[in-house]
Amino acid sequence: MRRSWLYATHDLSQSKTMWWSRLQSRGLHSSSCLMKKTPAGQRWVLRQLRDPYVKAAHQQNFRCRSAFKLLEIDDKFRLLQPGYSVVDCGAAPGAWSQVAVHRVNSAGTGETGRISGVDRITETEHKTQSDPEVPCGTVVGIDLLHIPPLDGAHFLSCHDVTDPATHAKLLELLPGGQAHVILSDMAPNASGFREMDHERLITMCLSLVDLAAKILRPGGSLLCKYWDGIIAHKLQEKLSSVFGSVQTLKPNSSRKDSAERYFFAKMYRKTVKR
């Protein structure tokens, strides 16, 4: 399979979050871990210890803290509805897919409801009610890395989101070959050069517009992460050319010192080829 040099996965911090959660579950004392770290590693561990979203992700069995970004956005805009078909690009380790599975009922549990109190995440609880009449949705996740299995999701591990072969598999897996929502929290492996990484991520996001032309149904939505920078406007302009509305979002769960932003595009206008 062809591999795109552009497409990687979620940033390294998410993998570290899973690693740290495993340490916590094994009861290892934080100070012993800190002693074995480099100065940069020590700073990272201290930040994780102080991060309420990391703690909440561990308590609520989310695979990483990024789940709360999607929860917060979906609580406000309701882009994920029972019965919807969702494609999660850059899905590893699977936190966004966990949220999508619950909200579109792709596991067929009939549970509805929203995780309440995102601003009070240390006290959040799942408030659900079972309803057999709730329609079942579909969640398909894609990543170059292996994605651990998840009930209610079909994962295309070791697949490139820009590869036509991946597009063909999506058309087979999605009901009617169409998705209601495309999600993307993917990012390139960090090079250490901020402008270069920014441009690479924008290019990756632009490839989602091509994907949308193949699988996104008219009126559908796209939510994609980008890093703010000099060519972010190009992505916004491209999205505006095929979506009726494009908004810039910065969830509260996104770290304040991060250049991370999200474009939420809705009301997709499918172009007709002539």
Results as ranks from 00 to 15, higher is better:
88 D>W: 11
88 D>Q: 13
89 C>Y: 09
90 G>L: 12
91 A>S: 15
92 A>M: 09
93 P>I: 09
93 P>D: 12
95 A>T: 07
95 A>I: 10
96 W>T: 10
97 S>M: 07
98 Q>I: 09
98 Q>W: 02
98 Q>M: 05
98 Q>V: 09
99 V>M: 07
99 V>A: 08
100 A>C: 05
100 A>T: 03
101 V>I: 09
101 V>H: 00
102 H>G: 04
102 H>Q: 15
102 H>R: 14
103 R>L: 08
104 V>G: 02
104 V>R: 05
108 G>S: 04
108 G>E: 03
108 G>A: 07
109 T>S: 12
110 G>A: 06
110 G>V: 05
116 S>F: 10
117 G>W: 07
117 G>E: 11
117 G>M: 13
118 V>P: 11
119 D>Q: 15
119 D>M: 14
121 I>A: 06
122 T>L: 15
123 E>F: 12
124 T>W: 15
124 T>S: 15
126 H>P: 10
127 K>S: 15
128 T>Q: 12
128 T>V: 14
130 S>M: 13
131 D>T: 11
132 P>N: 06
134 V>A: 09
134 V>G: 03
135 P>I: 08
136 C>S: 12
136 C>E: 13
137 G>Y: 01
138 T>I: 06
138 T>C: 12
140 V>P: 00
143 D>N: 04
143 D>M: 02
143 D>P: 01
143 D>K: 05
144 L>D: 00
144 L>N: 06
146 H>R: 11
147 I>E: 00
151 D>S: 14
151 D>M: 11
153 A>W: 03
154 H>V: 13
154 H>D: 07
155 F>N: 08
155 F>R: 08
156 L>Q: 02
156 L>H: 04
157 S>E: 06
157 S>V: 06
158 C>S: 14
158 C>D: 13
158 C>T: 11
158 C>E: 14
159 H>W: 11
160 D>Q: 05
163 D>T: 02
163 D>A: 01
163 D>P: 00
163 D>L: 01
164 P>W: 01
167 H>G: 05
167 H>V: 13
167 H>K: 08
168 A>Y: 00
168 A>N: 03
169 K>F: 04
170 L>M: 08
173 L>E: 08
173 L>I: 10
173 L>V: 10
174 L>K: 10
174 L>M: 11
174 L>W: 06
174 L>T: 10
175 P>D: 06
175 P>A: 10
175 P>Y: 09
176 G>E: 11
176 G>C: 10
176 G>Y: 10
178 Q>L: 15
179 A>K: 05
180 H>E: 14
183 L>P: 04
183 L>T: 08
186 M>W: 04
186 M>A: 13
187 A>E: 01
187 A>C: 05
187 A>G: 01
187 A>P: 02
187 A>F: 03
187 A>L: 03
188 P>H: 05
189 N>S: 14
190 A>W: 01
192 G>C: 01
192 G>Q: 00
194 R>H: 07
195 E>N: 10
196 M>Q: 14
196 M>H: 13
198 H>G: 00
199 E>K: 11
201 L>V: 06
202 I>T: 09
203 T>M: 11
203 T>V: 00
205 C>L: 02
205 C>V: 08
207 S>T: 08
207 S>W: 01
207 S>F: 00
207 S>M: 02
207 S>K: 07
208 L>N: 04
209 V>R: 09
209 V>S: 05
210 D>M: 00
211 L>Y: 01
212 A>T: 01
213 A>K: 13
213 A>W: 00
215 I>S: 07
215 I>E: 04
215 I>M: 08
215 I>H: 04
216 L>K: 09
